[in-house]
Every structure is written in C-alpha cells, then in structure tokens.
Design a protein around this nucleic acid. Structure first.
Length: 441
RNA sequence: UCCUCAGUAGCUCAAUGGCAGAGCAUCCGGCUGUUAACCGGAGGGUUGUAGGUUCGAGUCCUACCUGAGGAGCCA
C-alpha cells in the first residue's frame, strides 16, 4: 500500500492517480468475473471495480469473499465515471483485509428495511448507515453554527453546572443522584445560573446536556437532550424574539450552504427550508386563542380552547400549520408559565414570554422570556409555587445587588435538528438517544 | 398515569379457526457494468409469556410482558 492515503470525500483531487483508502465494505455486487465492492470510510462511499483479469487471483478471491462491514484497506486508481453516483470509481489493484466479518455471525443491519426496535437495539451499528451519518453531520453543523452565531455577537460561553442542589421548576421531572451525604439532581436547565453569569459578563450562553425525567413517549421527547441557552443583561422580550429569529435563520442558511449533500441524502425538502427567512410571524397568546376558536368553529380544531390554558400539542400544530416559517407566540397567561417570568407591565396577568414553534408540525423548539426584576415579587412567586426559599437565596441575591431587566431563551438542539433534517423522530438526531424505555446501548 | 395499535425464521412481512410461507441476509452454483443487481438451489420456526374456548388456535377470549404512536408534561 505505497499509494498516498486519502478519504473518499477527497478522491476527486486524485483523479487518474493511485490512492489508498481505509474503510469498510458497505456492499458487494458481482457479475461473474467482475466484482463491484462498495467501500465507505466515514466521509463517503465509492464503488470499486475488480475484473478478474486485471488483478492477482488472491486479490480477486479476497474481495469476492468479503462480508458486509468487513474492514479493509484498498489501493487502486481513481477514475471519473459518469455512471458513479459520486462521480468517481476505484479500479482496485490491491486489498488488505483488516478484519473479515464472520459469515456465522453476519452484520445484522442489511440494506433492506428494518423496524424501530431492532434499529434502536443496534444503534451502535445503525450509525454506520449513510442516512444516519448524514444526520449526525447536520447536527454537528448546527452546533457549530449556533456557537459561531453567539461567539460572533459578543456572547461569552459560560457552562452551568450539571449537578444541581435543587429544582429550577419543581422536582417531579428531575433525575436524583447521590451526592455524598446529600441529594443532588441532574440539571433540567442552566437558565438560573446563566442569569448569574449574565450579570457578570453581560451577554452569555451555554451549550450542554439537560435531563428531564418526563414519562413522555412522543417523537419530540428525550430524557437527555442538549440545549443552547443565551441570556442577556438589559435584554427585553423583544430582544430575545429578534435573537431567536436571527439564530434560526442563520442555522438553516448554514446547513443549506455547508450540508447540502447530507440534506439530499436524508431526503429533506429543501424548498421548505429556503423559505425560512426573517421576519417570522409573531402573534400574542390572545390572538392564538382567537385563531383556535375560529378553527374550532370551522371544524379544523377538535377541542374548543378557552383563554387561560396552556397550548397543547394539537393546538400548536394547528397554529403553526398556518405559516411556512417558524411562529412566535408571546405573552401567555402568567399562571401557566414558570415562576421567574416577568409580568407584562401593561397587563400583569400575562408574562413577557415567547414560544417559537417550528413549521411542519415540529412544535416548540425555543422557549424564552424576560426574567423577573423585582426581589419582592420573585420571593412571592417562589412562595406561591411552594419552592424552598433557602435553595433560591443566591438567585434572589441577583435582584438585591444591581437588578436589571434581563432575558433569554433555550433552544433544544435535537428538535432543531429534527426539523431542519425533516425527521420523523428526535431519536435519530443524537448518537445514543436516552428515552423512556431506552438506556441501551 | 391514560388511550390506540402491534408482537410469526437473523431482518421485513404473509397465512378464511384446518399441512408454518415469501423476500432479504447466510451457504453452494451461474453471470464482464452491477446500482437495496439479477437467476437457480440449500439450511433456517417453542408464532412474546401464562391460562382459557374448540374436534382443531399464529388466528377467538383473559391476564401479563415488550415495543410503537398519541394525550398529559415539555425544548
């Protein structure tokens, strides 16, 4: 194997030259004395061509006997060919079988269809499928793009703790862990800590895992998921709505630019993504209620919606289906939202908050708000919600020592990836999803 | 926690209450341009578990287990 090592992605730079590729056998077709092995190496796929007359017998036999996902190092000459999906084929000259998969225990994931349970049980192997690899590349791109977005706008990355002493919003959905002689919990949001770092650094954000022990079994839920959370000192609700709008358009644009090939492999309808441009429609909760009641009158909504309740999933799906870009709904009733949200001074019964609903039925991908300014009111809300005051002493301090209006939001990475990739379920957006009933592999 | 659906070969699925089947995968053979290649052949089964109805149950009934989708809750 004296030829230079390259990746399949870069074979176009070596047209007409001999190269070495290190990867796995994806599939093998044969037609008599002509073999067509397809190799993959993590960067792409390329079909090899092996005429029996062109190679030593031991090379022909070695390839002919390869089994799916056997690891191989192949040497051959790159040749542009119109028949090849990637534009190039490899005229194989030599092969080194690194490890041959035994035929007595063949690779379980064939190229045919499989069921969800089987694929999830073999998630560690399923990741090798081209579509799954493309989804993970888009995920990586979205994470990189989100970090670039905030870094370039003067936000400082501040990592909140993952082990926390108490609940942000109640203990019912927290995973408890033993912390020496104390009870600790896995974080369900870094927000409260980000409010503290925002008071120190002005504009901050975090990117990290969060954990929620919700017994939800839907296509939108994981028990372990990753969030991007910005927090802005002196920021208002309008500021975070504009920020959320800018972030989402930036993410979509970046994926269209840099992950076009992967989105095609995934089968995404790119026209729908190309429509994602600012401004996004913004409606108040009051307007949403009116639209839902109108929809009910027309028979398009199943249940009559009354002012005061939180929007359910079917309600959100109906509302977002009216638009071809993300929908922002703001100023929900304070009673259905978290204790730390600032009441609207014009209308104290509603909170200065916003939910951003992705189009095509993907639901809420961003939730944000202006945070409470007043120490007295925050203390009262903590009591109203039955939360332990001692645990929030440090949080209350933020309202005693130079309190300022401030705002932020959280975006679930997996829901954003599912939307941008057009996936049926968030379980495919993370290498090893953690769900109700799924802790393996 | 609740509602709905499903569980048959390694995988994806058939089978009117009446002999357990096909495709793919694996193995053997054929084919010099195949695109989830194709053609011929072989092996491969405690029909999720436990009961029940019946001359006879993969099929009907009960309970349980597992999975999927949804509600609630949420990003």
């Amino acid at each position: 194997m004296s030829s230079p090592i390259t990746t399949i992605r870069d074979v176009g730079k070596h047209d007409g030259q001999s190269v070495t590729i290190r990867g796995w056998l994806y599939n093998l077709r044969e037609s008599g004395k002509l073999l067509f092995p397809i190799f993959r190496d993590g960067s792409g796929q390329i079909q090899g061509v092996v005429p029996k007359s062109a190679v030593p017998p031991q090379v022909f036999d070695a390839i002919k006997n390869l089994t799916q996902e056997s690891s191989v190092i192949v040497e051959g000459k790159v040749r542009a060919d119109k028949r090849a999906p990637g534009g190039y084929e490899l005229d194989v000259a030599n092969v080194e079988v690194v490890q041959r998969v035994s035929e007595s225990d063949p690779y379980p994931i064939s190229l045919k269809e499989h069921g969800v349970e089987f694929l999830m049980e073999h998630r560690h192997l399923w990741l090798r499928s081209p579509r799954q690899a493309s989804v993970l590349r888009v995920r990586a791109e979205i994470i990189k793009a989100a970090r670039d977005f905030f870094d370039d706008r003067g936000f400082v990355l501040t990592d909140p703790p993952i082990l926390t002493p108490s609940a942000c919003e109640g203990t019912s959905t927290l995973f408890p862990v033993d912390y020496f002689d104390e009870q600790a919990y896995l974080t369900q949001s870094g927000q409260l800590y980000l409010e503290a770092t925002a008071m120190a650094l002005g504009k901050v954000y975090s990117f990290g895992p969060t954990f929620r022990a919700e017994k939800s079994k839907t296509r939108r839920h994981l028990t372990e998921f990753w969030m991007v959370e910005p927090e802005i000192a002196y920021g208002t609700l309008d500021d975070v709505m504009e920020l959320a709008e800018s972030l989402l358009t930036f993410l979509v644009k970046r994926c269209l630019e840099r992950r076009h090939a992967d989105l095609v492999i995934i089968g995404r309808d790119l026209e729908k993504l190309q429509k994602i441009e600012a401004p996004f429609p913004r409606i108040t909760y009051d307007e949403a209620v009116a639209a839902l009641q109108e929809g009910f009158a027309k028979g398009a909504v199943e249940n009559k919606f009354e002012w005061g309740g939180d929007l359910g999933s079917p309600d959100e799906t109906y509302l977002s289906s009216q638009y071809d870009r993300p929908l922002m709904i703001h100023r929900y009733p304070a009673t259905v939202k978290a204790f730390y949200m600032e009441p609207d001074p014009q209308r104290p019964d509603v909170a200065l908050c916003v939910d951003v609903l992705a189009p095509e039925g993907y639901g809420e991908i961003i939730g944000g708000s202006q945070r409470m300014f007043s120490h007295e009111l925050l203390l009262q809300r903590i009591h109203d919600h039955g939360l332990p005051e001692e645990a929030f002493k440090w949080y209350l301090d933020l309202r005693k020592y130079g309190s300022v209006p401030h705002s932020g939001f959280g975006m679930g990475i997996e829901r954003a990836v599912a939307w941008i990739c057009g996936l049926e379920h968030v379980r495919e957006t993370i290498p090893f999803p953690r769900m109700l009933n799924r802790l393996y592999p």
